[in-house]
Protein backbone atom coordinates (compact mmCIF):
# COMPACT_ATOMS: atom_id res chain seq x y z
CA UNK A 1 0.00 0.00 0.00
CA UNK A 2 1.36 3.45 -0.85
CA UNK A 3 1.31 6.52 1.37
CA UNK A 4 -1.95 7.96 0.08
CA UNK A 5 -3.68 4.57 0.30
CA UNK A 6 -2.50 4.14 3.87
CA UNK A 7 -3.80 7.58 4.76
CA UNK A 8 -7.20 6.86 3.22
CA UNK A 9 -7.34 3.59 5.10
CA UNK A 10 -6.48 5.36 8.34
CA UNK A 11 -9.12 8.03 7.74
CA UNK A 12 -11.69 5.33 7.06
CA UNK A 13 -10.77 3.58 10.30
CA UNK A 14 -11.30 6.61 12.56
CA UNK A 15 -15.13 6.58 12.63
CA UNK A 16 -15.11 2.84 13.43
CA UNK A 17 -12.82 3.34 16.39
CA UNK A 18 -15.03 6.24 17.42
CA UNK A 19 -18.12 4.06 17.26
CA UNK A 20 -16.53 1.37 19.42
CA UNK A 21 -15.42 3.95 21.98
CA UNK A 22 -18.91 5.41 22.06
CA UNK A 23 -20.29 1.92 22.54
CA UNK A 24 -18.08 1.41 25.62
CA UNK A 25 -18.93 4.91 26.85
CA UNK A 26 -22.67 4.27 26.71
CA UNK A 27 -22.20 1.00 28.53
CA UNK A 28 -20.07 2.51 31.29
CA UNK A 29 -22.02 5.72 31.65
CA UNK A 30 -24.55 3.90 33.81
CA UNK A 31 -27.57 5.31 31.98
CA UNK A 32 -28.39 1.94 30.44
CA UNK A 33 -28.60 -1.42 32.11
CA UNK A 34 -25.34 -3.14 31.13
CA UNK A 35 -27.07 -6.45 30.65
CA UNK A 36 -28.88 -4.86 27.71
CA UNK A 37 -25.65 -3.88 25.97
CA UNK A 38 -22.95 -6.51 25.55
CA UNK A 39 -19.48 -4.97 25.39
CA UNK A 40 -17.65 -4.92 22.06
CA UNK A 41 -15.10 -7.44 23.33
CA UNK A 42 -17.91 -9.76 24.44
CA UNK A 43 -19.45 -9.52 21.00
CA UNK A 44 -16.06 -10.23 19.44
CA UNK A 45 -15.64 -13.27 21.66
CA UNK A 46 -19.12 -14.45 20.69
CA UNK A 47 -18.20 -13.95 17.06
CA UNK A 48 -15.23 -16.32 17.35
CA UNK A 49 -17.29 -18.80 19.31
CA UNK A 50 -20.02 -18.82 16.66
CA UNK A 51 -17.42 -19.01 13.94
CA UNK A 52 -15.59 -22.00 15.38
CA UNK A 53 -18.33 -23.94 17.15
CA UNK A 54 -21.70 -22.99 15.67
CA UNK A 55 -20.90 -22.79 11.97
CA UNK A 56 -21.34 -19.03 11.51
CA UNK A 57 -19.79 -19.44 8.08
CA UNK A 58 -22.70 -21.61 7.00
CA UNK A 59 -25.10 -18.84 7.97
CA UNK A 60 -23.02 -16.26 6.17
CA UNK A 61 -22.87 -18.45 3.12
CA UNK A 62 -26.62 -19.17 3.16
CA UNK A 63 -27.47 -15.47 3.39
CA UNK A 64 -24.92 -14.33 0.87
CA UNK A 65 -26.12 -16.92 -1.60
CA UNK A 66 -29.73 -15.83 -1.22
CA UNK A 67 -28.85 -12.17 -1.70
CA UNK A 68 -26.64 -13.02 -4.62
CA UNK A 69 -29.24 -15.14 -6.39
CA UNK A 70 -32.08 -12.74 -5.64
CA UNK A 71 -30.14 -9.75 -6.92
CA UNK A 72 -28.79 -11.59 -9.96
CA UNK A 73 -32.25 -12.73 -11.04
CA UNK A 74 -33.86 -9.41 -10.15
CA UNK A 75 -31.32 -7.39 -12.15
CA UNK A 76 -31.38 -9.85 -15.02
CA UNK A 77 -35.05 -9.06 -15.48
CA UNK A 78 -34.83 -5.41 -14.42
CA UNK A 79 -32.23 -4.53 -17.07
CA UNK A 80 -34.28 -5.35 -20.17
CA UNK A 81 -37.55 -4.18 -18.62
CA UNK A 82 -36.03 -0.94 -17.34
CA UNK A 83 -34.36 -0.42 -20.67
CA UNK A 84 -37.59 -0.78 -22.63
CA UNK A 85 -39.44 1.50 -20.24
CA UNK A 86 -36.71 4.12 -20.46
CA UNK A 87 -36.42 3.88 -24.20
CA UNK A 88 -40.06 3.99 -25.20
CA UNK A 89 -41.80 6.90 -23.60
CA UNK A 90 -45.31 5.48 -24.12
CA UNK A 91 -44.29 2.32 -22.29
CA UNK A 92 -43.19 4.46 -19.38
CA UNK A 93 -46.41 6.47 -19.07
CA UNK A 94 -48.17 3.13 -19.23
CA UNK A 95 -46.14 1.26 -16.62
CA UNK A 96 -44.88 4.00 -14.31
CA UNK A 97 -47.77 4.13 -11.81
CA UNK A 98 -47.87 0.37 -11.52
CA UNK A 99 -44.15 0.04 -10.88
CA UNK A 100 -44.22 2.76 -8.27
CA UNK A 101 -47.19 1.06 -6.61
CA UNK A 102 -45.32 -2.22 -6.25
CA UNK A 103 -42.08 -0.58 -5.30
CA UNK A 104 -43.79 1.27 -2.46
CA UNK A 105 -44.98 -1.99 -0.88
CA UNK A 106 -42.53 -3.10 1.82
CA UNK A 107 -41.51 -6.70 1.06
CA UNK A 108 -42.25 -7.64 4.68
CA UNK A 109 -45.92 -6.93 4.09
CA UNK A 110 -45.91 -9.54 1.35
CA UNK A 111 -44.48 -12.34 3.45
CA UNK A 112 -47.84 -13.89 4.43
CA UNK A 113 -48.87 -14.00 0.78
CA UNK A 114 -45.53 -15.40 -0.29
CA UNK A 115 -45.89 -18.19 2.26
CA UNK A 116 -49.34 -19.00 0.90
CA UNK A 117 -48.19 -19.13 -2.71
CA UNK A 118 -44.59 -20.28 -2.49
CA UNK A 119 -44.39 -22.17 0.78
CA UNK A 120 -41.62 -21.67 3.33
CA UNK A 121 -38.67 -23.08 1.42
CA UNK A 122 -35.74 -21.52 -0.34
CA UNK A 123 -38.02 -20.44 -3.20
CA UNK A 124 -40.08 -18.19 -0.94
CA UNK A 125 -36.99 -16.31 0.24
CA UNK A 126 -35.76 -15.98 -3.28
CA UNK A 127 -39.10 -14.54 -4.38
CA UNK A 128 -38.93 -11.82 -1.72
CA UNK A 129 -35.35 -10.90 -2.58
CA UNK A 130 -36.13 -10.98 -6.28
CA UNK A 131 -39.09 -8.69 -5.72
CA UNK A 132 -37.03 -6.22 -3.73
CA UNK A 133 -34.13 -6.07 -6.16
CA UNK A 134 -36.24 -6.07 -9.31
CA UNK A 135 -38.30 -3.04 -8.36
CA UNK A 136 -35.41 -1.02 -7.03
CA UNK A 137 -33.28 -1.92 -10.07
CA UNK A 138 -35.90 -1.30 -12.70
CA UNK A 139 -36.46 2.28 -11.53
CA UNK A 140 -32.77 3.12 -11.60
CA UNK A 141 -32.48 1.59 -15.07
CA UNK A 142 -35.34 3.42 -16.66
CA UNK A 143 -34.55 6.75 -15.06
CA UNK A 144 -31.00 6.41 -16.38
CA UNK A 145 -31.87 5.19 -19.85
CA UNK A 146 -34.46 7.92 -20.35
CA UNK A 147 -31.68 10.48 -19.73
CA UNK A 148 -29.57 9.27 -22.66
CA UNK A 149 -29.32 12.11 -25.18
CA UNK A 150 -30.12 11.37 -28.82
CA UNK A 151 -26.97 13.26 -29.92
CA UNK A 152 -24.64 10.21 -29.82
CA UNK A 153 -27.12 8.10 -31.75
CA UNK A 154 -27.37 10.82 -34.37
CA UNK A 155 -23.62 11.04 -34.66
CA UNK A 156 -23.42 7.27 -35.15
CA UNK A 157 -26.13 7.40 -37.81
CA UNK A 158 -24.33 10.08 -39.78
CA UNK A 159 -21.19 7.94 -39.68
CA UNK A 160 -23.17 5.09 -41.22
CA UNK A 161 -24.12 2.88 -38.27
CA UNK A 162 -27.05 0.51 -38.77
CA UNK A 163 -29.52 -0.38 -36.02
CA UNK A 164 -27.50 -3.30 -34.69
CA UNK A 165 -24.28 -1.25 -34.64
CA UNK A 166 -26.00 1.63 -32.85
CA UNK A 167 -27.25 -0.78 -30.23
CA UNK A 168 -23.94 -2.54 -29.73
CA UNK A 169 -21.57 0.41 -30.01
CA UNK A 170 -23.56 3.31 -28.60
CA UNK A 171 -26.52 2.19 -26.54
CA UNK A 172 -24.79 -0.57 -24.60
CA UNK A 173 -21.82 1.58 -23.49
CA UNK A 174 -24.27 4.28 -22.43
CA UNK A 175 -26.37 1.74 -20.50
CA UNK A 176 -23.55 0.03 -18.58
CA UNK A 177 -23.25 2.81 -15.97
CA UNK A 178 -26.96 2.52 -15.22
CA UNK A 179 -26.76 -1.28 -14.92
CA UNK A 180 -23.96 -0.90 -12.38
CA UNK A 181 -25.91 1.67 -10.39
CA UNK A 182 -28.98 -0.56 -10.47
CA UNK A 183 -26.86 -3.43 -9.15
CA UNK A 184 -25.56 -1.36 -6.28
CA UNK A 185 -28.98 -0.09 -5.30
CA UNK A 186 -30.48 -3.58 -5.57
CA UNK A 187 -27.70 -5.06 -3.43
CA UNK A 188 -28.36 -2.51 -0.72
CA UNK A 189 -32.10 -3.13 -0.76
CA UNK A 190 -31.62 -6.91 -0.87
CA UNK A 191 -29.45 -6.95 2.26
CA UNK A 192 -32.05 -4.80 3.97
CA UNK A 193 -34.73 -7.28 2.98
CA UNK A 194 -32.70 -10.34 3.92
CA UNK A 195 -33.77 -10.57 7.54
CA UNK A 196 -37.38 -10.24 6.47
CA UNK A 197 -37.00 -13.03 3.96
CA UNK A 198 -35.32 -15.26 6.53
CA UNK A 199 -38.13 -14.69 8.95
CA UNK A 200 -39.95 -17.26 6.85
CA UNK A 201 -38.92 -20.22 8.93
CA UNK A 202 -35.34 -20.31 7.73
CA UNK A 203 -33.02 -22.91 9.28
CA UNK A 204 -29.81 -21.07 8.54
CA UNK A 205 -28.79 -17.63 7.50
CA UNK A 206 -27.89 -14.44 9.36
CA UNK A 207 -31.50 -13.32 9.52
CA UNK A 208 -32.54 -16.69 10.94
CA UNK A 209 -29.72 -16.49 13.44
CA UNK A 210 -30.88 -13.10 14.63
CA UNK A 211 -34.48 -14.28 14.75
CA UNK A 212 -33.61 -17.35 16.82
CA UNK A 213 -31.39 -15.36 19.14
CA UNK A 214 -34.17 -12.91 19.85
CA UNK A 215 -36.42 -15.72 21.14
CA UNK A 216 -33.78 -16.59 23.73
CA UNK A 217 -32.77 -12.99 24.32
CA UNK A 218 -29.16 -13.63 23.22
CA UNK A 219 -28.22 -10.03 22.65
CA UNK A 220 -24.58 -10.75 21.80
CA UNK A 221 -25.62 -13.11 19.01
CA UNK A 222 -27.97 -10.46 17.63
CA UNK A 223 -25.11 -7.98 17.61
CA UNK A 224 -22.85 -10.43 15.79
CA UNK A 225 -25.55 -11.06 13.18
CA UNK A 226 -26.19 -7.39 12.57
CA UNK A 227 -22.51 -6.54 12.29
CA UNK A 228 -21.97 -9.44 9.87
CA UNK A 229 -24.79 -8.26 7.59
CA UNK A 230 -23.37 -4.75 7.59
CA UNK A 231 -19.83 -5.91 6.90
CA UNK A 232 -20.74 -8.24 4.06
CA UNK A 233 -22.89 -5.56 2.45
CA UNK A 234 -19.99 -3.14 2.79
CA UNK A 235 -17.53 -5.57 1.20
CA UNK A 236 -19.87 -6.33 -1.70
CA UNK A 237 -20.39 -2.64 -2.29
CA UNK A 238 -16.64 -2.03 -2.24
CA UNK A 239 -16.07 -4.77 -4.81
CA UNK A 240 -18.80 -3.39 -7.02
CA UNK A 241 -17.33 0.09 -6.73
CA UNK A 242 -13.96 -1.25 -7.81
CA UNK A 243 -15.53 -2.90 -10.85
CA UNK A 244 -17.43 0.29 -11.63
CA UNK A 245 -14.28 2.37 -11.47
CA UNK A 246 -12.61 -0.08 -13.84
CA UNK A 247 -15.42 -0.16 -16.37
CA UNK A 248 -16.15 3.54 -16.26
CA UNK A 249 -12.70 5.12 -16.39
CA UNK A 250 -14.05 7.33 -19.13
CA UNK A 251 -16.62 9.00 -16.92
CA UNK A 252 -16.13 12.50 -15.68
CA UNK A 253 -16.49 12.09 -11.93
CA UNK A 254 -16.31 14.82 -9.36
CA UNK A 255 -14.58 12.42 -6.95
CA UNK A 256 -11.11 11.22 -7.88
Amino acid sequence: MNGAGLRRFGLGLIPWIGAILLWYAVRWSGFVNTSLIPAPHQVAAKFFELLTKEGLLIDIFASTRRVFLGVALGILVAVPVGFLLGWYRPARTFADPMINFFRALPPIALIPLVIVYFGVDELAKLVILFYASFFSGVIVMYEGVSQITPLYIRVAQTLGANQAEIFRKVIIPLTVPHILTALRVALGVAWATLVASELIAAQRGLGAMIQNASTYFLLDVIYVGIICIGLIALIMDLILRRITARLLVWQDRAIA
Binding site: L151, Y152, R154, V155, L159, P173, W250, Q251
Partner: peptide, 12 residues
Protein backbone atom coordinates in the same frame (compact mmCIF):
# COMPACT_ATOMS: atom_id res chain seq x y z
CA UNK B 1 -21.21 13.59 -42.92
CA UNK B 2 -22.24 15.89 -40.10
CA UNK B 3 -20.10 17.86 -37.69
CA UNK B 4 -22.44 18.80 -34.89
CA UNK B 5 -22.40 22.12 -33.09
CA UNK B 6 -22.21 20.16 -29.81
CA UNK B 7 -19.36 17.95 -31.21
CA UNK B 8 -20.92 14.70 -29.94
CA UNK B 9 -17.54 13.16 -29.21
CA UNK B 10 -18.15 9.70 -27.66
CA UNK B 11 -16.98 9.99 -24.04
CA UNK B 12 -16.58 6.23 -23.56
Amino acid sequence: GVIFQEYGVFPW
